[in-house]
Structures are given as C-alpha cells and as structure tokens.
Amino acid sequence: MITEWEADRPKWEQIADVIKRRIQDGTYPPRTRVPSVQQIVEETGVAVDTAQKVMTRLRQEGVIYTVRGLGSFVAEKE
C-alpha cells in the first residue's frame, strides 16, 4: 500500500489518500469492499487506532459506508 511515509503528514491521512486514489482510478469500484482495519494494519504496519481513524474519516467524508458484520464498501457517487 505505502512503501515510504511522508514525514510532514499523518500516516492516517496518507493511507486515506491511497484508498481514495484507488476508488477514483477504479481499483475499488462503487459497492465493492475496501480493505478492513485489520488489512490496513497488516499492509502498513500502523496501529489499530490509526487504521480505525482512516476508516472513520472516509465514512465522514462519504467515501465509504460500513455494513455491520459485512465490512466497508465504496459509496456510490452522487
């Protein structure tokens, strides 16, 4: 996901940007699953709290939605 961190930006912000880019370029089309908190932790080495902040921010921005028990998915564009 990320091979080198930018020192001047929070890690959660960098991860969120990667996921948003993948949504924009079609890697994650609408209504498809995005990586889970655990997958983000495993792929990036960040703490669980950091990965949760990524997901919370993406939900707040309306980029993804979460279905309890199923995961998080790309929201439809309006």
Rank of each mutant, 00 (worst) to 15 (best):
V41G: 10
T27A: 08
A75Q: 09
P30T: 09
M55W: 02
G45K: 02
T66H: 05
A7E: 05
Q38F: 09
R31D: 15
P30C: 02
R68F: 04
Y65A: 00
D17M: 02
T56I: 10
R33W: 00
Q24G: 09
I23S: 02
Q60C: 06
Q38S: 10
E61T: 08
K53W: 04
D8T: 08
R59S: 04
Y28V: 10
I40E: 01
F73V: 06
G62E: 09
T56R: 12
R9H: 11
I19E: 08
L58P: 00
M1G: 12
P10K: 14
A51V: 04
V67S: 03
W5I: 02
T44L: 07
Q52C: 09
A47N: 05
E4Q: 12
Q60S: 10
T44M: 11
G26A: 06
P30W: 01
D25F: 07
R9W: 06
I23E: 01
T50N: 07
R31H: 13
P29S: 13
T3Y: 12
V74W: 00
R68K: 11
K77R: 13
I40M: 07
V74N: 02
V54M: 11
R31I: 03
K53H: 14
R21K: 12
R9K: 11
G71I: 01
R22A: 15
K53L: 08
K77A: 15
K77E: 15
P29R: 05
D8I: 03
E4S: 09
T50Q: 10
P29Q: 02
I64Y: 03
I15H: 08
E42A: 13
R22C: 14
V63L: 06
T44K: 00
E6M: 14
V46Y: 03
E4A: 08
W12R: 10
E6W: 12
P35C: 07
E4W: 05
V48C: 01
V74F: 04
D25K: 05
R9Q: 06
R57K: 11
I64F: 07
G69D: 12
V41N: 03
V18H: 05
M55K: 14
V34G: 00
Q24D: 13
W5H: 11
Q60Y: 03
D49H: 10
D49I: 10
M1Y: 11
D49P: 01
A47P: 00
A51Y: 03
S36V: 06
G71C: 04
G26T: 04
P29M: 07
G71E: 05
Q39G: 06
V18R: 06
G62F: 03
A47L: 08
Q52D: 08
M1C: 13
G45H: 03
W12V: 04
Q14I: 11
Q24F: 09
R21I: 04
R68G: 05
I64P: 00
T56N: 12
D17H: 11
V41I: 12
L70R: 09
R59F: 07
A47K: 05
T50C: 12
V48Q: 13
V41W: 02
T56F: 08
Q14P: 02
W5D: 03
E42P: 01
R31S: 15
Q14L: 14
I40S: 05
G45L: 04
P35W: 00
V54Q: 01
T3A: 08
V63S: 15
Y65V: 04
L70K: 14
T66W: 01
K77T: 11
